[in-house]
Deep mutational scan, measured.
Amino acid sequence: MVYKIRDKETGKVYEVTIDEETNEITVYDVKTGKPVKTVNMTIEELKEAGYEVEPV
Rank of each mutant, 00 (worst) to 15 (best):
44 E>A: 12
23 N>L: 07
33 G>M: 07
38 T>E: 04
4 K>A: 05
18 I>V: 13
1 M>I: 13
31 K>H: 14
32 T>M: 04
13 V>A: 05
6 R>N: 02
9 E>T: 14
25 I>E: 00
21 E>S: 13
26 T>W: 07
30 V>C: 14
10 T>E: 01
12 K>R: 12
13 V>S: 06
2 V>F: 15
28 Y>D: 00
38 T>K: 12
38 T>G: 05
9 E>W: 13
31 K>T: 13
55 P>Q: 10
7 D>S: 09
53 V>G: 02
11 G>K: 03
29 D>C: 07
41 M>H: 04
36 V>M: 11
14 Y>L: 03
49 A>G: 07
14 Y>P: 00
46 L>F: 08
14 Y>G: 00
23 N>E: 06
8 K>F: 05
24 E>V: 14
32 T>E: 06
7 D>R: 02
25 I>F: 04
3 Y>E: 00
53 V>C: 07
36 V>Q: 05
49 A>N: 09
20 E>P: 14
12 K>V: 12
55 P>E: 10
28 Y>F: 09
44 E>S: 10
15 E>Y: 15
15 E>D: 12
39 V>K: 04
41 M>C: 12
19 D>I: 06
33 G>C: 12
14 Y>W: 13
5 I>T: 01
29 D>T: 02
29 D>V: 02
30 V>R: 08
1 M>H: 10
38 T>N: 06
47 K>A: 10
29 D>S: 06
34 K>I: 10
3 Y>A: 04
43 I>N: 01
39 V>P: 04
37 K>Y: 15
30 V>F: 10
54 E>G: 05
28 Y>K: 05
1 M>L: 13
44 E>T: 09
32 T>I: 03
19 D>E: 05
37 K>G: 13
11 G>Q: 03
29 D>E: 06
28 Y>S: 03
41 M>Q: 04
49 A>E: 08
49 A>M: 13
13 V>T: 08
17 T>Y: 12
7 D>C: 15
32 T>C: 07
3 Y>V: 04
27 V>I: 15
48 E>G: 10
56 V>R: 06
34 K>C: 14
26 T>C: 06
43 I>M: 09
53 V>Q: 02
1 M>Q: 12
25 I>L: 10
36 V>D: 03
45 E>F: 06
10 T>L: 02
35 P>I: 14
5 I>K: 00
15 E>R: 12
